[in-house]
């Protein structure tokens, strides 16, 4: 169980790891029950010892700290990108894909992607779902196809992840807070936080920052009349907890294209879709984001 716990800390959003950890947890509880039943008389003697009560008190105090999550504890949890008792679930059906994310009982996020007429179940398209902060930095990948060619097929998502990892690396090297090292794209927008919890579960709704849910989808070898292989398409929606909406449809933004920026560095930009696109436009019928926020 300790092993699966460490694994879950590093990979908190993997359903396999969480499932394994939950299973070992049940086994652990069963073993404890057997242990108590087997050693009931000697265990009673333990409670006469003050040290045992001290251990119990420390355990309760630590439990309360992790439940309340004051800033130092939150910082420790933040190292894993975890949001506390978060659980996510990705499900693929004939109708499409459903991603559920429940970071707390009062905040349930669900992304329902319905497949379109050109979606192939035999050779499903590559797909990535991620969150970006208000300065357009990747802050968390919610889902990415496990196929080996996913990064190449989903270049915009890969570019965003790379940018985020570079920023993290630079921050670690300099020993600075990430927000201090990554320049805002413009004076018009301050750098957003890089902690997903600040967006998804803001402590103060009035000071909450908007974030974007992004999808990149690409069907391999899908030609159109004017394109040998249609590039991936990007959909997005902006979520603003300050002005909360229960249902939001993701909108088609465009397709990514590689270019050189003013510093002569390679980057990916999004361009409006034009008449050259055909079947790629029908990979997704619609993508609905539902957020249930209970008070």
């Amino acid at each position: 169980m300790a092993g699966s716990g460490v694994w879950a800390f590093a990979q908190p959003f993997s359903i396999q790891v969480i499932g394994l950890h939950a299973l070992t947890g049940f086994i652990f509880i069963a073993v404890i029950g057997l242990h108590i039943a087997n050693n009931f008389v000697p265990l009673k003697k333990y409670f006469k010892n003050r040290v045992v009560w001290l251990v119990i008190a420390i355990t309760i105090a630590l439990g309360a700290l992790f439940y309340i999550q004051p800033p130092p504890i939150k910082a420790v949890l933040g190292l894993s990108g975890n949001l506390g008792p978060a659980l996510d679930r990705f499900e693929m059906t004939e109708e499409g894909m459903k991603y559920d994310y429940v970071p707390s009982s009062s905040y349930k996020l669900s992304l329902d992607i319905r497949t379109g007429s050109t979606y192939s179940l035999e050779n499903p398209p590559r797909l990535a779902v991620w969150l970006e902060n208000q300065s357009f930095y990747h802050i968390k990948t919610l889902y990415a196809s496990e196929a080996e060619d996913a990064k190449g097929m989903l270049p915009y998502w890969a570019f965003k992840v790379k940018g985020w990892e570079q920023a993290k690396e630079e921050a670690e090297k300099k020993g600075l807070d990430l927000n201090e090292t990554v320049d805002a794209v413009s004076g018009a927008t301050e750098n957003g936080s890089f902690d997903p919890a600040d967006y998804i579960l803001p402590g103060e709704t009035n000071s909450s920052m908007p974030y974007r849910v992004m999808i990149e989808i690409n069907q391999p070898d899908d030609s159109s009349k004017k394109l040998k292989d249609q590039p991936s398409l990007i959909y997005q929606v902006e979520v603003d907890n300050y002005d909360p909406l229960a249902f939001q449809l993701l909108e088609l933004v465009g397709y990514p294209a590689k270019e050189m920026n003013e510093e002569n560095e390679e980057e990916w930009a999004i361009y409006y879709v034009d008449e050259r696109f055909g079947s790629a436009m029908s990979l997704i019928n619609s993508a609905l984001l539902t957020i249930d926020r209970s008070p």
């Binding site: 933004v253 465009g254 999004i270 409006y272």
Partner: peptide
């Protein structure tokens, strides 16, 4: 103008 601005002011 064919490029999608990441934000309106771009």
């Amino acid at each position: 103008f064919a490029k999608v601005p990441r934000s309106h002011w771009m």
